[in-house]
């Protein structure tokens, strides 16, 4: 998921005149006809820019998203849980790589994207700036964060840009395991001791609202939504997806015997949906601005990982050069 950054300001507007109206109309007609747009085909510069921004932010989110869960790898309570968590964190790396690969088809280089992440120029999802304080947080992330991600990612499988849509198909297949292992972990805690259930409740209390924020600003405040919908990059609005998420998650919480931390949450028979309370948008904007609980830590760790891996990259290059020289001889 993790496409909140779509709503960041896009200062660079397309230079008018470069693209003829006829080109743009032809492009829109293809999109309207549900044709997929493929790399190297003509596309408006703004479409390309929007996709580069969205896909690379999505990729960065997967990469940074390894950290909160990686925090518990050495402390998983059983070998089974440790193996599961390891596989899940590895999947997140894989998702990041599928997405970088998709973004590269638009003409941006991997090094450029990684550089933008490390320099802080590029954004990633706000959700990963919250800490994982207890083991139950691993369950809450799978259940809620990956649940919200799936909600957002399933429509992206039908995105107008072919490589992004295809990457999302792979991601969604794997994401389902992430969500289910999270729910099962929560279920195990809820069926355990009083202290374990309290731990699960505490995790839900802390992750509920940040999970709702993952869908991005309300529709009225979402700057790029209309254009992205017209281009069929986005299929549902932020608020529609958020509502869907609440509707499917509330009964799951009930099954677990946990209370969602929202006094306004109630089933509305008239609308056929759950009503829910107002999100604290000031917190959302603070986290996006870099002032969440873990923003600095996440970036420091990412940079350290990159720097500490430099010798591996150099060794691989030296090895490749040596082999090439030997093969040439």
């Amino acid at each position: 998921m993790y496409t909140q950054g779509l709503d960041q300001k896009d200062k660079a507007r397309p230079a008018a005149g470069e693209e003829t109206a006829a080109q743009q109309d032809a492009f829109q007609a293809r999109v309207d006809a549900e044709e997929k747009i493929e790399p190297k085909e003509w596309m408006p510069a703004a479409y390309r820019r929007t996709l580069v921004r969205q896909i690379s932010q999505h990729a960065h989110s997967e990469i940074i998203g390894m950290q909160p869960e990686g925090n518990w790898l050495t402390r998983a309570p059983s070998l089974k849980r440790k193996a599961i968590l390891l596989a899940k964190v590895q999947d997140e790396a894989g998702h990041g790589l599928y997405l970088y690969s998709a973004a590269e088809t638009l003409g941006v280089s991997r090094d450029e994207m990684v550089g933008d992440l490390l320099s802080g120029k590029a954004k990633y999802s706000s959700i990963f700036n919250y800490p994982t304080l207890t083991w139950a947080d691993i369950g809450a992330i799978g259940w809620l964060v990956d649940g919200a991600a799936i909600m957002n990612q399933i429509p992206l499988c039908r995105c107008s840009y072919g490589p992004y849509a295809r990457a999302m198909v792979r991601v969604c297949k794997e994401e389902s395991f992430h969500q289910r292992q999270g729910f099962e972990l929560m279920l195990e805690l809820c069926r355990g001791t009083g202290a374990q259930k309290a731990m699960a409740q505490d995790a839900l209390d802390r992750w509920w609202w940040p999970s709702l924020m993952m869908f991005g600003p309300n529709d009225a405040d979402s700057k790029h939504s209309a254009q992205s919908m017209a281009w069929k990059i986005k299929r549902f609005s932020n608020d529609e997806l958020r509502q869907k998420f609440v509707d499917v998650t509330a009964p799951q919480a009930e099954f677990l015997g946990l209370r969602i931390p929202d006094d306004d949450l109630a089933w509305n028979a008239e609308t056929g949906h759950y009503d829910f309370g107002e999100i604290d948008w000031s917190e959302f904007h603070q986290v996006l601005a870099g002032n969440g609980p873990c923003n600095r830590e996440r970036m420091e760790k990412r940079r350290a990982a990159h720097d500490n891996g430099a010798w591996v990259r150099e060794a691989a290059e030296a090895h490749a050069a040596k082999r090439a020289a030997r093969d040439a001889a």
Partner: peptide, 23 residues
Amino acid sequence: AGSVHAADDQMALDAARDTYTRR
């Protein structure tokens, strides 16, 4: 299926296995 970056052919094959065939 997609693409990978690698320093040489063997590394590309290993990276492709780890990235695209985990299941």
